[in-house]
Amino acid sequence: MTTNLLHPDKWVDLYADYLFNYAVARVSDAETAKDLVQETFFAGLKSAKNYKGDATERTWLIAILKRKVIDHYRKINSKKGKAEVRINYSSNSDSDGDWLEEQVADPFSTLENDFIENEELGLAIQECISKLPKKQSLVFNMKTIQGVSTEDICKELGINPSNLWVMVHRARTALMGCLNENWF
C-alpha cells in the first residue's frame, strides 16, 4: 500500500465543505462550525509531522475535527459553570409521573436513523463533489446548495448561461456516477 501524503495547500478546496457539513451537524451553528474547520486546518498544519500516512488525509482531518468539536462543548460548558443535571419530570411542564419510563426513546421511531442516514448521505455527496473539477464543483455548489440564480452566477463567474448548463450537466452526470453504487 502506498502511504498517503499531506497536501495542505489543497485542503480548503478539497475538504472544507466536507468538514463543514460534519461540524454543522454537530454544533448546529454555521459560524461556530466554520471556526472549528479553520481551527482543524491550523491544528493539522501544526501536527503535520506526526502524520504517519496510514489514514487518508480526510480521515485524519476528520479525527482532528472530532477533537475540536469535543473541545468546543467542554469550553461552553465550563463558561456556564458546572454542567447542569436536570431532574425535573419534564422541562416544559410541572406534571409529575413515572418519568424514566415515560421519557425513554420510542423504540419504533425511525427518526434518529433518518438523521444518521441523511448525514451519511450528505458526506457521501460532499465526497463526490470534491472529486469534480474546481469550476464544476463551484457552479454546482452555487446553483444547488446556495441556490444562487443562474443570472447571478453568470455575472459573478463571467460565463454565459449555456456554459453554465454545460457545467451543471457534467457535474450532475459525474455525481450520478459517483453516487451510483451506494445510493440509487
Binding site: 480548503v12 472544507a16 454555521a30 450528505g122 455527496i125 460532499q126 446548495i145 455525481l175
Partner: peptide
C-alpha cells in the same frame, strides 16, 4: 437526475461560500 435532486434535498447540504474559502486559505 430527479433522484439526484431529491437526494441533495434530503441531505440538507451546506457549503462555505467561495469568499469564505479564500479567507480560510489566507489564514493558513
Amino acid at each position: 437526475n430527479t433522484q439526484l435532486t431529491s437526494l441533495c434535498d434530503k441531505a440538507d447540504l451546506r457549503c462555505l461560500s467561495e469568499s469564505e474559502k479564500v479567507e480560510m486559505k489566507e489564514k493558513i
